[in-house]
Amino acid sequence: MKIFGLSPRVIKVLLTTQYANMLEYRIEIALWALSGILPFIMLSLWTESNTANTFSFTNIELSRYFLSAFLVRQFSVVWVVFLFEEDALLGRLSPYLLQPIHPLWRYVSSHLAEQLTRFPFAFLIAFIFFTLNPSSFWIPSFPRFLFACIATNFAFIIAFLLQSLIASLCFWSEKASSLERLIFVPYLFLSGLLVPLSAFPSHILKFVLYTPFPYLINFPARILSGMPVDILKIISIQIIWILILTPIVRFLWQIGVRRYTAMGS
């Protein structure tokens, strides 16, 4: 039986080797987890400023939202373009291209392994959050939790595809990673990492909903924090984005890889 053209053995080897590799860097990964504290800074700002009632959130809902946003981000953060750029420039990509497995799968497995390593740290930060802020403790219902996991994974896939799109531009330009900023900036402001999207003025919100960004943080976080949201609609829109982005990435990769010059090796 094959999954996405990969045999279970290949998947197992990829994941276990990458996981072992990641365990080597536990302190670094703990620091990465800590560098995601932005939602908490924003939470302290919004609760202090009394604007909470203007966008129909109670303070408890607000803190649940931002904790969920933190968790969703922890398990959907992607940095494939930086890995890929380095590999392409140093010529390390050459042996990967010879192997009978798409190089992107290697990056997928390293991201998944990193998420697994990150899990205890994210959990610890959530635990500290609840001890400081016990009134906001909640346990999502099981179906909600399940849907939140699915939505977070889809968010990861969309983010991964968006970055792979930029990464495949590395075949054309040496410093394509700076193009990543063009995705990161709208992601930062439109994903809901800094403020729940319901605070946006409606005419801006209407436009933002046509971009993939709100489906990366805002809606998965709403699902996890137990707020009213049309779960099936969110997940179907995520699937639509995946279906749109996948062929584009495949196409760009196919024409880009012909330009690969195996620099530096």
């Binding site: 670094e28 620091l31 990465w32 800590l34 560098s35 504290i37 800074i41």
Partner: peptide, 11 residues
């Protein structure tokens, strides 16, 4: 990564 933490706090 530690400078990333610093950047996040400085934000």
């Amino acid at each position: 990564n530690a400078t990333e933490v610093l950047r996040a706090v400085l934000a």
